[in-house]
Computed example of a mutant assay.
Amino acid sequence: MFKNHAGINLTETKLQLIEISFKDDSFYLENVDQTIHAENFSSTFPESKLISILQYSFDKIIKKKPLEAQSVSFSLPNNFFRIFEVPYDDALVKKDLHEHFRWEISTLFPDSDHNNFYIQHIEIDKSKVRHEKSAIVFAVDKSLVAAINKFCTQNFLVLKYIDNAHLASNAFLNLNGKKNQDEISLSVYIDHKYSSISVMDGASPFYFRVLDSTSQKIFEELTTAVNKLNEFNLTLGDFNKILLYGQDLTDDFENKLKDFFGTGLGIVNPFDQLKTDDVILNNPLYRLKFNSFTAATGIAIRIV
């Protein structure tokens, strides 16, 4: 039986919260809210400071509407991860494979303690587009995960998942299940610091590139990322879907992205398939900022 589940998208500047329930044979959006942190959140802060900032923002939201969910999952931005693609030997068992990835972390990010990361990897040869033995690696600091877990314990919450915000948002590529299994899709996640582009074969990502959102030449970076697809014999015209997720997109920037990708660019509304009440229907975040809640909603529906 489905019980209420909350999704939190945690960024350097704010906390976004979604709560989903199941009643009357339908999934309901019970809450959508966000608040700005008292000070910028950095994954390198000591545990006590991480929890203090997180608690302050969380309290501001639940004072307006208490959380009914007992389980919660978090999505985190690209700059809270070490993300890279490397070849791997498929003869290695999982433990040895992760040791190989840790060695890569020590080489690519020499200022980081390679032993202090939880590692998730995606094998790109699971797709029918790329067949080389390479993996996209997402590594998150164990200290950050420990702080989030301690925060949950202190608030009598059970932590279910922690994932990358773009990967969490990609849930909206696959809500139709089998219908999308053979589709080649592209998604763009726009964030304040490090945006990203992801290419999927059904539910399997086979390309992921982080972009520098602060660059004055972000469209040059997008062009470089898209040109890389030529190596896989793909062009923008080959995609069944091109979806956009993002944080506080301006109309001007959104129009520039539409011009870049063409008319096929879809702006995702993560609330489309969720019922809700009149209070939330009139919430400006629900009506005007829906696209910025793809990560929080995507991680909230992870157990649906």
Rank of each mutant, 00 (worst) to 15 (best):
M1F: 12
K3N: 13
I8P: 00
L10S: 05
T11G: 08
E12N: 14
L17E: 04
I18S: 05
E19R: 02
I20R: 02
S21R: 00
K23I: 13
N31Y: 09
E39S: 15
N40L: 14
T44C: 09
F45C: 10
S48Y: 15
I53V: 13
S57N: 06
S57V: 01
I62H: 04
K63Y: 11
K65V: 05
P66Y: 07
L67D: 07
P77R: 00
P77K: 00
F80T: 00
F80S: 02
R82C: 04
R82S: 01
D89F: 06
D89C: 01
V93K: 10
K95S: 04
F101K: 01
R102D: 11
S106L: 11
T107G: 10
D113I: 03
H114I: 02
N115A: 09
N116P: 10
I119G: 01
I119W: 01
I119A: 01
Q120C: 01
Q120G: 00
I122C: 05
I122V: 14
V129Y: 07
H131F: 10
S134C: 06
V137W: 03
V140Q: 00
S143V: 04
L144H: 01
L144R: 00
A146F: 13
N149C: 03
K150P: 03
K150A: 10
F151T: 00
C152Y: 03
F156P: 01
I162K: 00
A165G: 04
N170Y: 04
A171D: 05
L173D: 02
G177H: 07
K179R: 15
N180W: 11
Q181C: 13
D182V: 07
V188S: 07
K193Y: 15
I197E: 05
D201V: 04
S204V: 09
Y207I: 02
F208V: 11
F208L: 14
R209F: 03
L211Q: 06
L211H: 08
D212K: 11
K217R: 11
L229T: 11
E231Y: 12
N233K: 15
T235K: 14
K241W: 09
L243F: 09
G246T: 08
D251M: 08
D251R: 04
F253G: 06
K256Q: 14
K258I: 11
G264E: 15
P270L: 08
F271G: 04
D277R: 03
V279I: 13
N282T: 07
F290E: 03
F290Y: 15
N291W: 02
V304L: 13
